[in-house]
């Protein structure tokens, strides 16, 4: 898992605030951001765009076999979320007592993702909550 401060820091706007970008040529919206528009297949003008973070569960699973740094939280619920603005993104789904299934509407929440051990940085991230 990434231990360096910089690698987490440079993704902060995306990880905290779902800052996407949009191709000014074809209108495709990308989250996470892309330098080159995949649809146009070339370098076009890309502009930042904040997403609502609202979306729909496209698929989901509860992981019982965690990656490093996620042992304490395991098992945790992961989803592919289809955001209202178009892009699909993987994210944690927090368990708030509401049922999660394909088609469940979600909204963004702000949570701890993982920490670099007891003394290292805490990495914060968007997660999704069923509404």
């Amino acid at each position: 898992m990434e231990k360096a401060s910089a690698s987490s820091w440079r993704r902060m706007e995306e990880r905290y605030n779902l800052l996407a970008n949009e191709c000014k040529n074809c209108g495709a919206v990308y989250f996470p951001q892309r330098i080159v528009c995949r649809k146009c297949g070339r370098h076009t003008k890309m502009e930042s765009r904040k997403l609502s973070g609202n979306g729909t569960v496209y698929s989901y699973t509860r992981t019982h076999s965690p990656a490093d740094a996620f042992e304490e939280e395991s098992p945790y619920l992961i989803g592919v979320i289809e955001l209202d603005e178009g892009p699909r993104v993987e994210g944690h789904i927090v368990e708030n007592g509401k049922e999660v299934t394909i088609g469940t509407k979600v909204r963004p929440v702000f949570r701890r993702m993982y920490a670099d051990g007891e003394e290292g940085l805490i990495h914060y991230h968007f997660k999704f909550a069923p509404v």
Binding site: P32, T61, T63, Y76, I78, E90, H123, H125
Partner: peptide, 30 residues
């Protein structure tokens, strides 16, 4: 599990604790 996770997108999958069984489970569910 973490080493194999490097086969996915480190910054957007593994950094969220999404493992390979997790990715294929997402495909299976769908």
């Amino acid at each position: 599990t973490t080493a194999l996770g490097g086969a996915g997108d480190q910054e957007w999958e593994l950094a969220q604790g999404i493992t390979f069984p997790g990715l294929y489970a997402l495909m299976a569910k769908r």
